[in-house]
């Protein structure tokens, strides 16, 4: 799983810490999300997408395999 969180976060000039605070998770969780090492719940995915003003489909890119 790849994500565009880092790219969109940079667009909105948000640090990992700030994004974490906005969605109510630890900074570590944002780090793992950006690396694609953590599968978030639908709620967290929705919250992150909302903060970054995008959709879940745009934010998370799943490999077809």
């Amino acid at each position: 799983m790849n994500t565009r969180i880092k790219e969109l976060r940079a667009r909105y000039n948000l640090t990992q810490e700030e994004l974490a605070k906005k969605v109510g998770v630890r900074r570590e969780t944002i780090v793992f999300l950006e690396k694609g090492k953590y599968n978030p719940s639908l709620k967290l995915a929705h919250d992150v997408a909302k903060v970054l003003e995008t959709t879940i489909e745009e934010l998370f890119i799943f490999d077809e395999d």
Binding site: E17, K21, G24, V25, R26, R27, E28, T29, F32, K43
Partner: peptide, 12 residues
């Protein structure tokens, strides 16, 4: 520690 490091989020 920063406040966000202490949140018991879904990953934790």
């Amino acid at each position: 520690k920063p406040e966000t490091e202490l949140v018991a989020d879904e990953r934790v």
